[in-house]
Design a protein around this nucleic acid. Sequence first.
DNA 1: ATGGCAGAGTTTCTCTGA
Length: 267
Amino acid sequence: MKLATWNVNSLKVRLPQVLDWLAANPVEALCLQELKLSNENFPLDAFTEIGYQAHWAGQKTYNGVAVISRTACTDVQRNLPAYEDHQQRIIATTLDSAIGDIRVISAYCPNGQSVGSDKYEYKLAWFKALHVWLQDELKRYPRLAILGDYNVAPKDEDVHDPSKWVGDVLVSEPERAAFNALLDLGFTDAFREFEQDEKSFTWWDYRRFAFRRNAGLRIDHVLLSKELKPYCAACVIDKAPRSNEQPSDHTPVIATLDFGTAPSLVS
DNA sequence: ATGGCAGAGTTTCTCTGA
């Protein structure tokens, strides 16, 4: 089965592109971020018409996340428990699979705006709350995949020109430490489990022809728990939608889980 | 040092994103 994530930067504007993408890429589940629409404006019919189900946590103007899935989801949960947050950044659902339940989480981590700002402090606090929740969630759902826009480029190799970004928001040491703390829970950055092209990115600024220059960042990630990692057969970035007319500034990341593969890598 | 693009709402400007 394939799981994907895409920050669409307005589902209203990007809906035709998302439908086209699903037709060409019939993944089991697609996690969306930055819906930028309220719950009542979610285009459910457009997804059901092409054979998908949807669960979402919307919000007027900003944020908003969803899981679009081929089959029914259960145990839907919105937002981080034990963390008061008016911003809709998390939706968790459970999917059935050949090896049993898989917990799939769509996450839109805060941007942070600039190092030292109030939004930066919120970002770090939010990551701490995410860490606490995932620790708990892993006990209930050992087969856990968390996909989304983390707004963190984990290493310098994930930055087009690291010298220009030193200490900046998205690459600062505390943000990378917050990301690494998630890995310390046993998660794996699926993309880095496979050989990849140098300068592989998931986001490119709309300005200054950044996509054409490949001046991007890798900030959208698929994290797989220890129990899921052995089944991961591939993880790729699909750059094609970034070339669309009126594109999102992010592009999808897709992980393939192959349950026919014996989990020989379990240690 | 700054703005540059894009989307949404408070709309002909402001806020946010990354």
